[in-house]
């Protein structure tokens, strides 16, 4: 009886806080993404603007580890019995990827663009009891600084 009570309260806790945290995170991501639109990130190998002279380049990275809540994990476990699309994990990796790109961009605000963007995903708690508890996303790319360019108020 006690065990059931614990599981139910954990589910409730996960549902309430997880939902709130996810909504808050999405609001943050959307606000930040529109703020960082001036700094484009592409996975092209060469810079977009070839007419300008490049002053220097730099390797930049951004990473984040995000975990799913207890309620969603339970949902995913149930879903895995019948198969099909698992929405709970889709939003998890989507949030992680977007957050990693935001961090990548914030680490080089003075740059004009980021080229050769790569995203890498790995699960941290692999081998643990909960198989896909949390994911890590690493975004990396080459930041290009043009000569005389001055964006986001950063002095070069």
């Amino acid at each position: 009886m006690l065990q059931i009570a614990i599981i139910v309260s954990l589910l409730l806790l996960g549902y309430v806080f997880g939902r709130h945290a996810e909504a808050k995170h999405y609001r943050y991501i959307e606000a930040k993404e529109s703020e960082l639109l001036a700094l484009p990130a592409t996975n092209l190998r060469t810079p977009l603007n070839t007419s300008k002279t490049i002053s220097h380049t730099e390797l930049v990275t951004g990473n984040v580890v995000i975990s799913v809540d207890y309620f969603k994990r339970m949902l995913a476990t149930l879903r895995a019995l019948v198969g099909g699309e698992i929405n709970a994990y889709e939003t998890l990796v989507d949030r992680a990827r977007r957050e990693a790109i935001i961090r990548l961009k914030t680490s080089c605000l003075g740059a004009s663009e980021i080229i050769n963007l790569r995203l890498e995903t790995s699960s941290i708690s692999k081998g643990g009891r909960n198989q896909i508890g949390s994911v890590e996303v690493l975004a990396y790319g080459t930041a290009i600084y043009y000569q005389g360019a001055n964006t986001e108020g950063t002095v070069l």
Partner: peptide, 22 residues
């Protein structure tokens, strides 16, 4: 991190661990 796993969200400890290792 195990506790944070219940409510979901960012695991700051692991984020730091991985960026230090990198």
């Amino acid at each position: 991190a195990g506790l944070k796993n219940l409510v979901g969200g960012e695991l700051v400890g692991y984020t730091e661990l991985l960026s230090e290792s990198r």
